[in-house]
């Protein structure tokens, strides 16, 4: 989970960095950060919980985009380029950290459409009484 706390903070940092690092006038750069920042923070926060830990991987394409953005969008500010690439590399790397899963979830999301999963096997073992 620590990795996704860091990613949430990196997303918030992106929202604030233009004002802190002093390139607020560069509209393309700041727009890019103000769009990517909230998305990264949201996906990171959703993946704090074990049942939705898989959402961390949605941040991989966003992180990779931050690595490419300075070249695709033609950043003319070195600080912003370094910031975007550094945050992009960190977010991408941290997104792959799965962390400990201590609870059991009946086989997870794939068990909703797959057959013979943990929850189905466990349910078969239980006596089928009239549970009102």
């Amino acid at each position: 989970m620590w990795a996704h706390v860091l990613n949430a903070l990196l997303g918030i940092w992106l929202m604030a960095s233009a004002a802190i690092l002093g390139y607020s006038d560069a509209k393309t750069i700041t727009d890019n950060e103000h769009i990517a920042g909230p998305i990264i923070a949201s996906f990171a926060i959703i993946s704090w919980w074990e049942a939705t830990r898989v959402v961390r991987l949605y941040n991989v394409p966003v992180g990779l985009w931050l690595l490419l953005a300075p070249w695709v969008l033609g950043f003319d500010n070195t600080t912003a380029t370094v910031n975007s690439m550094l945050v992009g590399a960190l977010v991408t790397g941290l997104s792959f950290v799965k962390g400990k899963i201590k609870d059991v979830y009946g086989g997870g999301w794939s068990a909703v459409w797959k057959s013979d999963t943990l929850h189905a096997r466990e349910a078969r073992k239980q006596p089928r009484t009239n549970l009102k």
Binding site: I45, I46, Y105, G106, V112, W113, H119, A120
Partner: peptide
């Protein structure tokens, strides 16, 4: 955003029940 994660585990249990 904070509410999304904790609401999803219960939905998962219901969807597995429906399966």
């Amino acid at each position: 955003v904070v509410m999304i994660g904790p609401a999803m585990d219960e939905m998962l249990a219901s969807l597995q029940y429906m399966k």
